[in-house]
Amino acid sequence: MICTVSTIKDSVANVTRFVEGNLAAGADHLFVFAEGGDRDVLTRLEEHPHVTVVDADAMSRRVAQPDNLNTRQTINANRINWLLADLDSAEWLFHLDGDEILDIDKGRLLALGPDVETVRLLPKESVSSSEPGYGGYFKRLLSNEELALLTLFGVIDEAFNSVYFHGHVSGKVGLRPSRRHGVHIHDVSLIGQEGSTEDFRADWLHLLHYDSVSPEEYLRKWTVNSAGTPHNFRGRRKLIHAAMSGLVKNEQIDEAEKRDYMLEIYRREIEDDAPSLQKFGLLETVEPRHHSPGSFTRQESDAITAVLPRLLEAEPRYFQPRRTEYDPAELMTTIHAGASSRHPR
């Protein structure tokens, strides 16, 4: 079994793409913490046999959760990591955002030896364009020579992948579920230790990142981001976030003007010069996958049903791997004792 864990606040259409895309690409079961209280999104997820959904808003009313999104994502990922550590069929867990889809060779992944405990998925980013015809194209990370070419021709401002990509360039990680390891946004660490573990990389391990595929999606995403809780943006994205947030909060500008300004930011900062990228042969398409997902055993499903609610009720700081004052082993012993007494096996 290959599983994913995500914290999502998105539209029904995007959530559907996320679920169907990841299951087709090799995932067997998705754990989704759904924020935003959208009943249609929750219903779509609850009805799917290969999805376990947590109503994150209801959870936060029972146990206070951190304001910072990245911190909540880390906590949620480790709840599922430690849940799956006891299940024999859960071989890999990937921590993904709601706009990311696996692009992997599942056979090769499952053939890796037990000495490989973490892998890295390098990103392919969707082209962002207002022009028709580029919806299925992706950008890969470029070599120094390719970046230099684009810079000299004025396609990008500086010869860095961090400038060429609008989203992250470090990718995401997968790990064999383990209570020795803690999951973060872009890496894995040993519990209670600083630094990251070494990860395995290959040309058949990627993810597809649908960052801002169109002006409409850009407006939807950044309006949500600007009005929502704090993010750990850096560099140019931090500047864009501040500008968008200022526009959203500006009561002196009407909604039509705000939209015009936001679209101008999109044209200046986000939209790719897709014709030039295609001319230089730098765009890729991805072959569709048709994976048939597997299922947990009945015993494993019962264990998830028994243990997951206890994990959701626990103090969130247990699931921040670098907080050495909270012992996850002690927590899990207590949780399993309680689950066993309530759900005899």
Rank of each mutant, 00 (worst) to 15 (best):
K258L: 01
A77D: 06
E264M: 10
L45D: 06
F94L: 08
H209C: 07
K9R: 15
Y134T: 08
G182I: 09
N78Y: 03
G281F: 13
I335P: 03
D260G: 05
A56R: 00
Q65D: 15
D103C: 14
F165R: 03
T43M: 13
Q299M: 02
E257T: 15
Y326W: 15
N232S: 14
F138R: 03
S196E: 11
R120V: 00
D157I: 10
H290G: 11
I253A: 08
W92A: 04
P309I: 08
G107V: 05
G113N: 00
H291P: 08
H48F: 06
S340E: 14
T118A: 00
E284C: 13
W204N: 03
S89H: 09
I104M: 03
R234A: 14
A34W: 09
R179W: 10
E158C: 09
E271N: 09
E46S: 14
A111W: 05
F94I: 07
S340G: 15
I2K: 06
A242V: 11
D203F: 04
E217Y: 08
F296R: 06
D40A: 15
S341P: 06
A314C: 04
D10P: 11
S341F: 14
L311E: 06
H166R: 15
D254M: 02
R79I: 08
R176W: 02
S126M: 11
L283G: 11
A24Q: 09
N81S: 10
N70L: 05
M244C: 04
T118R: 05
F18M: 03
S60M: 04
K221R: 02
G192K: 11
V41M: 08
R120W: 05
N232R: 13
A27Y: 02
T333I: 10
V116Q: 07
S292P: 12
D254G: 07
V248E: 09
L93D: 03
